[in-house]
Simulated scan of single mutants.
Amino acid sequence: MKMYLISLAVGLLVGVLYYILNVKSPAPPLVALCGLLGMVVGEQLIPVIKNLMA
């Protein structure tokens, strides 16, 4: 749980810094979220495939 809170806090900090520095996000929010979802699914998919093959 602590890891999630730290991740959220750092994300919020970066968002505030982007706003203060008037920097646009490098990717549109929906595209970024889809990319993150793909990363999470990909990370979880390999152990599932390994278990199915064993």
Rank of each mutant, 00 (worst) to 15 (best):
K2V: 10
K2S: 12
M3K: 14
M3S: 13
M3I: 13
Y4L: 15
Y4H: 12
Y4T: 14
L5W: 14
L5C: 10
I6A: 15
I6H: 11
I6P: 05
S7M: 15
S7Q: 13
S7V: 15
L8N: 05
L8C: 05
A9N: 04
A9F: 08
V10Y: 03
V10P: 07
V10R: 09
V10F: 04
G11T: 13
L13R: 12
L13Y: 10
L13E: 12
L13S: 13
V14I: 15
V14C: 12
V14L: 14
V14P: 06
G15T: 02
G15F: 00
L17P: 00
Y18D: 11
Y19C: 11
Y19T: 05
Y19H: 04
Y19V: 08
Y19D: 08
I20F: 02
I20P: 01
L21K: 01
L21P: 10
N22R: 14
K24S: 13
K24P: 06
K24H: 13
S25A: 13
S25N: 07
S25M: 12
S25L: 09
P26E: 03
A27E: 04
P28K: 01
P28M: 03
P28Q: 04
P28C: 04
P29W: 01
P29I: 00
P29T: 00
L30H: 07
V31L: 02
V31N: 01
A32E: 04
A32I: 00
A32G: 02
A32W: 01
L33D: 10
L33W: 12
L33N: 07
C34I: 11
C34A: 15
G35C: 02
L36R: 07
L37H: 04
L37S: 12
L37C: 13
G38I: 06
G38M: 05
M39Y: 03
M39C: 09
M39K: 02
M39A: 12
M39R: 03
M39F: 04
M39P: 06
V40E: 05
V40G: 02
V40P: 02
V41F: 01
V41Q: 01
V41P: 00
G42V: 12
G42P: 06
G42Q: 08
E43P: 08
E43W: 14
E43Y: 15
Q44N: 14
Q44K: 13
Q44Y: 07
Q44R: 11
Q44A: 15
Q44F: 10
Q44D: 15
L45M: 11
L45G: 05
L45P: 01
I46Y: 11
I46A: 09
P47S: 00
P47Y: 00
V48P: 03
V48L: 06
V48M: 05
I49Q: 10
I49V: 15
I49C: 08
I49F: 01
I49H: 06
K50C: 02
K50H: 04
N51F: 08
N51G: 07
N51D: 11
L52K: 09
M53D: 14
M53K: 13
M53W: 07
M53N: 13
A54Y: 07
A54T: 03
